[in-house]
């Protein structure tokens, strides 16, 4: 999720996010994404700037 988008300047550079382990499915595009440490944000936002995902960690926890 981008914030302060002017300063962001459309370039995520090496920014990464830690995603819980497991397989995640996009709520928006149907793509799949593997969890793990330091997943590049640029990769997550390639198709749509605001990705939302659901995944196995959630399904297992309920």
């Amino acid at each position: 999720m981008p914030r302060l988008v002017v300063g962001l300047g459309g370039d995520w550079a090496d920014t990464a996010i830690d995603i819980p382990d497991g397989s995640w499915g996009s709520l928006l595009t149907g793509e799949e994404q593997e969890g793990g440490p330091r997943v590049p944000v640029a990769e997550l936002t390639r198709r749509f700037p605001l990705p939302s995902w659901r995944g196995a960690p959630y399904l297992a926890s309920r």
Partner: peptide, 18 residues
């Protein structure tokens, strides 16, 4: 988040919804 633009992110696993 971490990295050069980390302060530009809000990440939330809202029930496994990033």
């Amino acid at each position: 988040a971490s990295g050069a633009k980390a302060r530009h992110t809000v990440g939330l696993s809202a029930i496994a919804c990033w």
